[in-house]
Amino acid sequence: MAETRLQESNKERKKVGISNTLMLFIVLVIMIAFFGITSQIKFGQQFFFSILNIIPMLSNISYIGIIACILTMLLITGEMDFSIGGNIGLTSCLAALLLSKGINGVLVVLICLAVGILMGVFNGFIVTRLGVNSIIATIGTMSIWRGIGYTLSNGESMLAFNPVIDYLGRGTIFKYIPFPIILFIIVIILTYIIMNRSKIGRRIYAIGVNPMASYLSGTNVKGIKFLLFIFCGAAASLGGLILTSLSAVGMPQHGQGLELTVVSAVILGGTALSGGKGQILGTLAGVLILSILYNGLTMLNIMYFYIQIIRGIVLILVVATYEIRQSRALRRV
């Protein structure tokens, strides 16, 4: 086993990204098998592998996944957006408020996405034009967005029932497949194509690997980062709308702490915080691992505190494995 792996990685030395992703999917499969089997043993019944579990779980993570895919692109350029959680809170309150004023559902969705884009523009402006470090800038805007959310909602949660909004999170296609999962899949495919096949994807990677060399080769580094901040803003508000739909409630607390969940999933997927490295499929695996871990452990009646500990250990283990593999690959050159 170890030997074949060694041979594999010798052959694939240049493509550390792909084989790391492969590793993640193997971990994922092992995890799924483990939860399936233990659930069977413990309860004598298959709770984990049932449509009743898998489908709601996937719709619950679809909004995280959508944001994670887009954030992966931004992280690859070496920038960060922590304001996504605040964006979700604001969007969800805004949507509920507009609905309560009797505004048409489609219009509400469009307004919220436009506001999301504006939030992205604001982040992009602060980071690329004023030159503020993106971590600091977006921690700042995170607080601003959430504060506006509290102001809009007066701190209360507001019911948000509307056919259009309902469909966004709870509608189904072909009777069984929830609409947010479809959205998630579309985003995965789009971002995958962008990052692996497109011109802008190439520029994103090059910026992450060496911003100076990219700039001196005529790449509009700031422009691309700006664009990705806008994408992030739009993705977060789409996520906020889905979450509003899933909970049927607009509340300023929505998305609290979500930025860390999303960032951990992206990092787990093999994206480097320093930029230049990352794969959309890796992020997909990261999102699935973290949420299946929660789902499976909760299924097994494991206390939340232990789940937190296990999550942390998994994150560190996986990232440490990347580092070890990386340094081995370097030593072999």
């Binding site: 709770f47 909970s247 998305g255 206390m303």
Partner: peptide, 24 residues
């Protein structure tokens, strides 16, 4: 006796409800 912790978080409450619902 199935248990989940909502952590004062509505999103988590929703997710937990789904997980527990799957256990019928």
């Amino acid at each position: 006796l199935y248990y989940a912790d909502n952590q004062y978080d509505a999103t988590m409450g929703l997710q937990n409800a789904d997980i527990l619902l799957a256990k019928k």
